[in-house]
Design a protein around this nucleic acid. Structure first.
Lengths: 343, 343
DNA sequence: GTGTTTAATGTAATCGATTACACCGTGTAT
DNA sequence: ATACACGGTGTAATCGATTACATTAAACAC
């Protein structure tokens, strides 16, 4: 029923080759012929069949972005950047978000690596086990990793400097004179940035010639994304016989919960407790007091990742195997102050 | 280089038809043959070519979701719902976000309607002119609209009750005794929910036998999404000779700015000024005081929209032309109080 | 034994574009 | 006048699956 290229060709009195050329490289067709073909296309409401084209050209002009969720501000900025680049390069974006469901993550990986579906994959913040990430890396689909690092395979990794982020917030608190600083590192332990953040925390202490109290480093064997659980953990921390004077939250969402708990307990930030976050989400600046946190260059991360992926796909530059680390920036607001001696 | 179905067939000693059946309806193939074929598939690392399949079957098993941005909590919940349904139904999701760029919105519409690319489209919160929406509605791609309403075309529309949302917040304030209530309706005027929200505002007054002061209804001819502009508008409103005692913000983001302005001016919410929002974004409950707002059933909206679209695609039910309106729910927190007589 | 049903498999046409190669006519160089 | 280049166009093979229809063998009824 739908018009095919052949129908257009017949109506315009040319061959399908010419119609194809009008669509793909109009400059190779004489002006008048082009006009006739365009008219025919309009008249027949011709739609090009991308499946047929893909079959012939062996490229889909589609890339998949595999992410844990789109509900995180950092991630959706990153996705926006990726899409911006994709649009200018005439690529489409297939959304694959796993929502913390590792079976689904696995299913997406299978699908991508066992079907000719996309020209490349951007794998952001893998939550699944390293073997699964490797499965994708070893398939023949061009891959770029974001927020994750693997050695050995030639897979490019684009990372924000997660060590530095927590290093900076921790140093900021140390500079205020805090010594009993807690780290709330509530993500999965095998999650790459979680390890990096812990490293940043310890490095900051080491740089000051100190070391953190292990009692105050909270890491969950079984990670949870339920705010109620988080609140439980925070309350426990503050019930400690010798409670912290400052809390380094591993991201702003957790910091939000710290604020909520403090309000409930009648604690005043930063007077009774200093708090830092990470990510600089929208609400960070609207909190009372505004939250000191770290800006992640999410947009730049996405841009760079997508550009790198395109280079891999087009094999423009075979030297792009290296890891890229992007700087993060401490955003000082009003949630930190010197420790209260009284406490 | 890559193995084709024919290669698998040869290795397994069967015809391509059988291989295809193993892939698509394994139950129609005898146990032993199936095993042989599966082994061959594994051995050759055979990947099915989706383009070839699509060409033959005339379906892509992909749907496009056209949205203004993914950075809005309501929208990303909706997208998540859509993806959840898509995954269970074996569809892929093509992300088309326009980021307020109407040229890009137009380009996406063109692309979708002039190429055989997707089996259907979910068009969420169109920002573009009605004619452009109609262009898509009149193309032969199955379409479902979200957060928008058109008459006449057989296009299903799935909507949250935007009239009711602002009706409820306004009534809530009226019940507290407020009379000088401002409406901050800062979206584009041709944007459907904007019209509905204004209607809700006026209906609430009418139901109380009152009418709003037109001076206090702020609508922008040229909409802006810049928080600084918003702050200017809010300040202007509070500088009014006879300022409002309450502000109905058209969404929580604007309410956030109202909070910021109040803090800057030393006004205390809700003592000096009552505020309501809309959307119930994450930070609403973390504000001080927690914001009274309206919960939009974003997840349900997305689910229903996707289900409806699938029914259209499969033509399961030709009676799904009707508009569906989903209820919204007032979430009372602590940002409203009776008006101060002193002000 | 004959006819009929059923399960399992094979044959081959088909989906709709792309593109290497061939071809033609005109203009330009020698 | 001959050769050559070049822009514009056509011919036809090809990409890799799906599936209607045909075929075969086995099972079963009578």
């Amino acid at each position: 029923m739908r018009a095919r290229m052949e129908d257009v060709a017949r109506l315009a009195g040319v061959s399908t080759a010419t119609v194809s050329r009008v669509v793909n490289k109009p400059e190779c067709v004489s002006h008048e012929t082009r006009q006739r073909v365009m008219d025919a296309i309009g008249q027949l409401e011709y739609k090009i069949n991308l499946a047929a084209r893909s079959l012939r050209t062996n490229q889909t002009r589609t890339i998949a972005i595999l992410i844990p969720t789109i509900a995180e501000p950092v991630i959706n900025q990153l996705v926006e950047a990726v899409e911006d680049v994709a649009v200018t390069e005439n690529y489409s974006l297939l959304m694959c978000s796993t929502r913390g469901d590792s079976a689904r993550e696995q299913a997406y990986i299978q699908q991508i690596s066992q079907q000719t579906m996309v020209d490349g994959v951007l794998y952001v913040s893998p939550r699944s086990a390293p073997e699964q990430v490797l499965e994708l890396a070893n398939s023949d689909v061009p891959l770029v990793l974001c927020n994750y690092h693997v050695e050995g395979t030639g897979t490019p990794c684009i990372l924000a400097d997660h060590v530095s982020s927590i290093y900076q917030t921790t140093s900021h608190l140390l500079a205020f004179g805090h010594r009993r600083i807690a780290l709330l590192n509530l993500a999965a332990l095998h999650y790459y940035p979680a390890r990096m953040r812990r490293e940043g925390f310890e490095n900051a202490f080491a740089a000051a010639g100190l070391s953190p109290d292990p009692d105050l480093v909270v890491e969950l064997r079984e990670p949870t994304y339920d705010a109620n659980d988080w609140r439980g953990v925070i309350n426990e921390l503050l019930d400690h016989a010798h409670p912290p004077t400052a809390i380094v939250a591993f991201n702003d969402k957790v910091a939000l919960e710290v604020y909520a708990v403090c309000r409930a307990r009648g604690l005043c930030i930063p007077h009774d407790l200093s708090v830092t976050g990470c990510d600089d989400i929208l609400s960070a600046r609207y909190l009372d007091p505004p939250l000191t946190t770290v800006r992640i260059p999410a947009y730049e991360l996405g841009q760079l990742a997508m550009q790198t992926l395109l280079m891999r796909i087009n094999q423009t530059d075979p030297t792009i195997h290296k890891t890229t680390l992007l700087d993060v920036e401490l955003v000082v607001r009003e949630s930190c102050a010197p420790p209260e001696q009284a406490l």
